[in-house]
Design a protein around this nucleic acid. Sequence first.
DNA 1: ATAGCCGGGTGGTGA
DNA 2: TCACCACCCGGCTAT
Lengths: 225, 225
Amino acid sequence: MSLVSRIVVDTREKASGIPELLERRGVYVQRKALDVGDYILGQCVVERKTGQDFISSLYGGRLFEQAQRITQSYKQFMLIVEGDMQEILSDMKNPKAYWGALLTLALRFDFRLFFTLNQTQTADVLSLLATRTKQGEASRPLLVRKPRMGTERDWQLGVLESLPTVGPKFAERLLRAFGSIRNVLLASRMELAVRGGIGEARARKIQELLDAEYRRPTTKQTKLA
Amino acid sequence: MSLVSRIVVDTREKASGIPELLERRGVYVQRKALDVGDYILGQCVVERKTGQDFISSLYGGRLFEQAQRITQSYKQFMLIVEGDMQEILSDMKNPKAYWGALLTLALRFDFRLFFTLNQTQTADVLSLLATRTKQGEASRPLLVRKPRMGTERDWQLGVLESLPTVGPKFAERLLRAFGSIRNVLLASRMELAVRGGIGEARARKIQELLDAEYRRPTTKQTKLA
DNA sequence: ATAGCCGGGTGGTGA
DNA sequence: TCACCACCCGGCTAT
């Protein structure tokens, strides 16, 4: 797995100065003439437009055409509109067109929209996105919110809440019923379901997780075949 | 199909003045206490946040909690951030946090993000969206919703990480050493320390928590029982 | 979410 | 065996 984030940049983006900003952030930038989009990060294409660009391509009718082409080539699409919205909007006679266009892009074309004020921010977004993509989308557990700075009870509840299908209410019930975390985790499936007052389906799910064998991340599968 | 657009609005949104603005635009507004989100248009739920709201719920950590709840209740999610982001961003020393948050909302939670400058614009967007929804232009749910639940490995790590003094590194070590969550939790203190490669002090702390007797919150000490 | 600092734990080193 | 120290890691705070 490469150690640095990698972004393919359309050659025409050079003028924006963004490629250079990206490199300064430690991103490996690869210049290339792209037929569609301005930046490519893995499965994601990013189209960057300045406010004026956006407006003019909207009025010129080529906005959705472009959007369509992009959607056919990649899995995920992002549009970064760069510039002061206030200013952009004041340039328009009919702001409704602006919002309508955004809605269409977001809902019909499934674009992710981002708004930045300048090239620096755009570069920030791109490099962050690149970092993220690099990690193979390996998402963090996400659900787990540590009961930081906890009373003991907070920790106890927190541990149980980190189990699937267990929220605050069930955590409380389980602890009341079994007295301690260990007792909860040692309980058999039936005990969990009956004494804990959580259905058998949930009990099963929990037990499955507890006993599931850990499979280490596939990162090391190098040549081990 | 009804002839007028229809939006369900959370009662708490009254103060924003937006419901009234919507009505003035000819939208049929239905007030209701919503458990999640602020506006509902068909299958789409919209959460509206002022800039400050957004930032503070980000700092407070309740942003993603909310996002997750919304995610599991509806088909499509939209977040409207209202206010001048320029000035809010300039107050932040770590804009990265802001962009990171937006990225996870957009990519991982599949939220559609919109930025408006004031209530008027928000109302514009909402009424436009309502019109569109009404026309059944809900179109293709072009979205393929993937099972949002994390992988089993994430859950396993998450459970262990919810223990005190255990972060990503130790969680991984423990699972590697013991093979399953249950084995980790069943291990004796010495086993934990030696095999798990965490010191004895940490092992003790963990075991103490596991065996600690749950003391129910005193607030709910009802004599009703 | 992210960065940075802090404090404490661990394991090794050398007396 | 113990005291010390350098490093790692997880927790907390601020933005």
